[in-house]
Design a protein around this nucleic acid. Structure first.
Lengths: 215, 215, 215, 215
DNA sequence: CATGAATGAGGATTCATTCAT
DNA sequence: AATGAATGAATCCTCATTCAT
């Protein structure tokens, strides 16, 4: 008598997979278009779900954006931890870290864009996420340990602070990716072109080490 | 008898002033909220005009945004030209340029934000502006001339290219402003705080010169 | 305690009814005011829904207009098919068809207006509707069959084509309705007045049959 | 001391020419896009003047539209008067008039569109124009005179009224032009194609005369 | 878990028209 | 006779979000 003997169950995927596909789709849409530019509809379509599911799992567009940010930050910090810098001599550790940052930002332009976007929003969303807050202190202490070892060994200047080194290092790596488009348009040369890449990777390491060795 | 003692507030009949106030308001709104986040209404209100006037003079939200970008880029290039770098010895010229960039980006965070925003949009708008295209080649040739002089004098390495120096210099100055909020939130310390400012300004000059002197 | 004795007026939760009421309202507004003259707001108000629902179901003003056109064309073609012309002797079939067209256009001035409006837009919208394209070939083949029978029976001239007959017939019926207002204003007599109606209905049949019998 | 020794006088055209060019431009824009679809800006641009001039000479968009209508109606009535139908035998006069209408509507599709547009607006504008009202009674009396002569000569039926003949004649001529686009799209054949034209021109004359001769 | 229907507030843009010179 | 500047009221459309089932 009932129309269908079986429940409709058109998309009986497991919740974890649905959540994951939403997150992946959101990562793409947000990094492509920004927080204001991203469309909830487009995310749902890309994820192969409905808008309703986004609200079901992430409560709001903002909530989803925050989840994406957390996921993205977790990625880089995890990779950082895997570098095994403690085992290396100070100068090698710095070199390795610098090259890692260089490679990571280049390989993950969507992460770079996301961070730019979050800065446009004055970091309001990561400020509300304890997850991210917790994750990040580590880099600084990691660099701190390297610096201490190098200073004790007399190869690094004594007045360099971990945050300085982090900035010096990350600025270059981040900037060439984050500002790729304006730089490329204005100077008529893509800063990520293979022609420049090798030279710049060397430059980064050199300038950081040169700074640390000074005095 | 009941005539207004003052001319009616609106209807300014001063096109240049109207245009200018729109541009100023738009600069604030766009740099505050991004292209998608900015509201045409808010711009009109801030400018003390009506939305209609925006469309009268700038044709579209995008057109206005482009005008703002052009204006902003013209600002930094004009300031750059006023530095008189040709008259300085190569190392002093680099130092002065680096400090100028450092100070300018810090003093003009709205400009920095605008450039970040434009990169999120893949530089689509400056690509359509011949005005901006034309303005910017100059920095590179300025740096080129300094490098040539330094290389002839034997104080700079021979394999350094102008674009490399521009990147190395600007990356640091731009990044500490553009990423101020995420950096501040994550590391619990504002990268623009007076405590860090002086040290970083010195660091910038040092690392650039250390790189140029190497070999 | 204070619950509403009647269900809330809106939120009908009857999609078919909502769609239908929008379509009906749109038919009236578009035929009254043309595509450019019609107001989406007015359609929503007349339909007892919100503008948002129009976009939910029909995507755009143009999409709704297209749906209205499809609906209207389907109406006349359906009625045509119900005439049972195949069973009638050729001359009677022509007479019946002519009278049907005469009556239909008169009874459906909104359909006539809609077709006029669509012609002002150079049929751009029906060109994009396969639904309409498919519906209409039938009239021609229907007339073709009648002509063939009449020609075989020796009562119709051999050089008459279906499209000619369709035009001759429809032109008169359509024109007196479509141009009712200019005709009425200029000649001071409503072409749809009862005084003229009977005479013209006869005239139509006579002139078509006279043409078909000639030679 | 004055800036310009000569008055600016950028476009020192004579008023009549300006008025005329506005009228011509408006004829095109209105017949292309309808009353609601036409843009005052577009008319000014096409006329090589400014919007202000339109208001200067025609007071409003509606006023301009009315002027265009008057001009267009004057055209066909003038041409009609030049036919010299009084000098022809009744049947020849009808034939000549029919062929004139056929040719005129075909040669002036913009006039046809304008009349359609005015009917969409329920002839509200020609109702307000005494000029047009006056112009048009003439056709009816012209046809009336021909009919009277034909009826006296015994070649035309006695019960035919001038307005009937006008309708029968004009409907066909007008319809094939006014509905050209829907007909062409639906039947896959342009009703104005040379292939059909000759046949239809003959058809028109035949069916009108066949009707008049009947009984 | 899942879904189609519904919604309100806002957002960019357009248009005919008038003012002041 | 002519003009650039200014204007207000609409107009179409979009977006994130919630309801009812």
């Amino acid at each position: 008598m009932n129309e269908a003997p079986f429940p409709p169950a058109r998309r009986a995927r497991d919740p974890a997979a649905t959540q994951r596909s939403i997150l992946d789709a959101a990562f793409i849409e947000f990094s492509d278009n920004g927080l204001d530019g991203a469309r909830v509809d487009a995310i749902a379509a890309r994820a192969g779900t409905t808008v309703r599911m986004i609200y079901y799992y992430f409560a709001s567009k903002d909530g989803l954006y925050r989840a994406v940010l957390e996921h993205a930050y977790a990625g880089i910090r995890t990779a950082e931890r895997a570098l095994g810098l403690e085992a290396l001599p100070p100068e090698d550790a710095i070199r390795r870290l610098a090259e890692f940052v260089f490679d990571y930002e280049e390989a993950n332009p969507r992460f770079v864009r996301l961070v730019s976007i979050e800065n446009i929003h004055r970091a309001a969303h990561i400020a509300r996420s304890e997850t991210i807050q917790g994750l990040n202190a580590t880099v600084i202490s990691t660099i701190g340990a390297i610096l201490a070892r190098g200073q004790d060994a007399g190869v690094f200047r004594r007045d360099a602070e971990p945050i300085d080194v982090h900035l010096l290092m990350t600025a270059f790596c981040f900037f060439r990716v984050s500002n790729r488009h304006t730089l490329g348009t204005i100077f008529g040369q893509d800063p990520l072109s293979p022609a420049l890449r090798g030279r710049h990777r060397g430059m980064l390491v050199e300038s950081v080490l040169a700074f640390l060795r000074a005095r």
